[in-house]
Every structure is written in C-alpha cells, then in structure tokens.
Amino acid sequence: MQTQKPGIKAVRSDSVFQLLNAAFLSLISVSMLLPFIHIAAKSLSDQSHVVAKDVWLWPKGLNFSSYDFVLSYKQFYVSFGNSLFITVVGTLISMAVTLLAAYPLSRNGLPYRRLMMLIFVITMFFSGGLIPTYLIVKDVGLLNSLWSVILPGALAPFNLILIRNFFSGLPEAMEESARMDGASSLRILAQIYVPLSMPAIATISMFYAVGYWNSFFQAMMYLTDRSLMPLQVFLLQLVSNDKPADMVVNDVLSGVTPESMRAAAIICVVLPILCVYPFIQRYFVKGIMLGAVKG
C-alpha cells in the first residue's frame, strides 16, 4: 500500500483540519460526559449535599455509603449473575440467528427474498400485544426462566436489516471462487462474510448486548421468582420513587438519600457496558481483509 507524497500545502491544510476537528469533537464529547460525571459525583456525595442540590460535577462530602448500601444486598450479586447470563448467552444466540438469516437475505435473486424480509419488517410495526405474547411464552414453557427474557426478542429485525445491508455491500468475487471450490453456504458465511464484516458484527453484537443488559420489561412480565431478577429490575425497584412512605424514611435514616442511591445504581449498571466497549472498538480497524479480497 503505497501512497504518493502529498504536497506541502495539502499537509498544512490537513493538519489545520485535524486540529480543528479534534478541538470541536473534544468539546462536544466533554459536554456529553457531563451528565455522567454529574451522576458519579452525586453517587459519591454526602446525602445532605445531594438533597440540597449542591453537587454538580465534583462530589461534596465524599463518602461511599450509597455504594455500600447497593452492594450490601445479596440480591445485587444474584441479579448481576442473571444479567450476565442473559447478555452473554442472548447475544450469542441473537448473533447466530441474525447472521444465518442475513446471508440468504442478502443473496440477490434468491426467490421470495423480499417476501421474507417483509415478514421481518412487519413485526417492527405490528404486535399482538402483551397478553397473547405472554400466553405464548407460557405455552412454550419459558415462564419463570431466563430464556423468556432471551428468546422472544432474540431476533431484532432492525439489526437483521443492517447486517444484511453490510453483506450485500461485500464483493462477490471471492464468494464465487469459493463456490467453485465447492464450499457450502454455511462455510462461505463463516469463512468469508463474517471475517469481512467484523466492524459491523461488533457493532450489532453491541446493540444486542446492550439491549439484553438493559432488558427490563420481559423480566417484569415473565419472571416472578425473585432469584431470577436481572440487575436492571432489581436496581430500579430498589431506588424507585414511589415506595411506601415508611420505606423511604427507613432509607433516609440509614443515611442514604434515594437520590444518591439512584445515582450509585446507575453507575453500577452503566460501568460494565463501558468496560466492554474498548473490546468492541478493537474491531473498528480499517481494512483487515478488504485489501486482500480485491483483485
């Protein structure tokens, strides 16, 4: 990969652009960091300052009582485990199903391709509603099992469409030569399409993972066993506003404001996702294989 030396003028205008761009992007990204810092500061502050709305971007009266409180529940760890299971297993299943379906749907000229696509798209608009879905989940025997949080939404048409789009954009040449060598469709998908679309796959995996990690509604509806509660449900209930009066007072007396507790809960939920992102970004590297494909 050889590039021609660009002229001096181009270099200067380029570096000016780079600087301006970096400055601009840094500025807006800092503004987007603000709410998160604000919450973190609140979660680490003394309750009086939080109630007084004194805390803005730096904790006042630093203390960890909110975290002590949230982490003192054994349910926290149980729920964390549940969420982890739902997220990991769910994402694997979702990706498998999505990739498998995206490949044939990206095959130009496959009969009934548009019809199949339409079948998926329609579900983005129409839903039978809560009760019939619940009855199906019940009949399938998934009620009160973590699978009820995973399977009903395991295929997101939106993600399927995106992956299909990436696949259709890939060059055909390599596939054709592989086909001539007698490779099966599954093999072509696994050995050519998947490696070629790693950035997209990483992105969609993250979409799925975040969706599972935040799944809330299904858990509320399909799980009654408290030992199956995912983290989001547990924390939301723990820090909810409309708790009975004497409970709220109880918390206050134990030294934690609902406000700072809520902040701590948000941090507990968001941090794990943040830790995953750098791994995803690793796949955001240009042209791992593309260069080799062309030809």
Partner: peptide, 20 residues
C-alpha cells in the same frame, strides 16, 4: 439458514398477532 430466525419471529411475533 433463515429458518431459525423465521421460527423465532413466527412463534413470538406472529402467533400472538391475533391479539390486534
């Protein structure tokens, strides 16, 4: 290859569709 996805959609989205 498309079958798993279609099965999921049919079971969890289309079967309950009578709810409309």
């Amino acid at each position: 290859m498309a079958l798993p996805a279609i099965a999921l959609i049919v079971i969890f989205k289309y079967l309950p569709m009578y709810g409309v």
